[in-house]
Design a protein around this nucleic acid. Structure first.
Length: 269
DNA sequence: AAGGCTGGCAACCGCGGATTC
DNA sequence: GGAATCCGCGGTTGCCAGCCT
């Protein structure tokens, strides 16, 4: 497995920020010739850069279809949901956000979202309440208050606080999913983060056993819905025909109709 | 006013999968 | 089949502007 020869110790190749002149050369070249082989591009475009640097500059900054500006709330939610399923697979996440770049999303995650999740004590890696020592220190402060209030066993208090936090997180995710269902946003990418969060146990998906799979999913959702605290509204607006598992059934059926080797099975598995 | 700190972002690095020879 | 090369990805670094003390 060889490594790219484009390296820092290559003294002939320029590094660092791009000048407007370099940008223009790169854009002009790609507009007329396409990028072709990135390796040979710099030479042909008259740039003293390595191909890798050119590719990065093009994909992260110069591409004409790049959407600049702040992330909308919808985009932010989508990123969080996708991240909860896909983890740091920025390239996969970015495929659901047209006009954004993986670098942009990665930076956005590391600077904004991570902090936003950490603040209420959500682990940005697992999307579950944090259990590390720092966070437990904070919990211990709450614990003192709780103990003064009702003389609970300290351990019971910790467990209760963590369980409450987990339930709140789950409830919030389910609520988001309901909203998406209700606004008829059937883009599967919006469902994947949310719905899978509702299935704490690993669900085996058997190829060619659709009814069985659907029943497992149904049971799983019913079970989890029963566990949720009363935060999820049961008003007529939310308790509509299109329940979560029905939506999932539909997705799975569409999936199976596609021929099986599916993205959904991959995610569920 | 100046120095330190922090957040945001562009760019680089190195790894590993895919492709070519 | 295996070595060489290319490409893309994710992690990390470094710079800069704005804020704080």
């Amino acid at each position: 497995m060889g490594r790219s020869p484009c390296r820092a110790d290559d003294a002939n190749v320029k590094k660092g920020p791009w000048t407007p002149d370099e940008d223009q050369k790169l854009v002009d070249y790609i507009n007329t010739n396409g990028h072709g082989s990135w390796r040979s591009l710099p030479k042909q475009a008259g740039l003293n850069r390595c191909g890798k640097s050119c590719r990065l500059r093009w994909t992260n900054y110069l591409r004409p279809d790049i959407k600049r500006g702040k992330f909308s709330e919808e985009e932010e939610k989508l990123i969080i949901n996708l991240h909860s399923v896909l983890g740091n697979k920025w390239s996969r996440i970015v495929s659901h956000l047209p006009g954004r770049t993986d670098n942009e999303i990665k930076n956005f995650w590391n600077t904004h979202v991570r902090r936003k999740l950490l603040n209420p004590g959500i682990d940005p890696h697992t999307h579950k309440p944090r259990t590390d020592l720092d966070h437990l220190l904070n919990i211990s402060q709450l614990l003192c208050v709780a103990q003064l209030g009702n003389l609970m066993n300290p351990l019971d208090t910790v467990f209760k606080l963590q369980a409450d936090a987990a339930q709140l997180a789950e409830a919030q995710l389910l609520q988001n999913l309901m909203q998406i269902m209700n606004t008829n946003q059937r883009d599967p990418c919006q469902l994947e983060g949310l719905a899978v969060q509702q299935t704490p146990q690993k669900i085996p998906i058997h190829a060619g056993a659709a009814p069985q799979n659907h029943q497992i999913l149904r049971n799983s959702f019913e079970q989890n819905e029963n566990q949720l605290p009363g935060l999820v509204s049961t008003s007529p607006e939310t308790a509509q025909d299109s329940t979560i598992y029905e939506a999932w059934e539909k997705l799975l059926m569409e999936d199976e109709a596609d021929g099986g080797a599916s993205y959904w099975k991959e995610i569920l598995e």
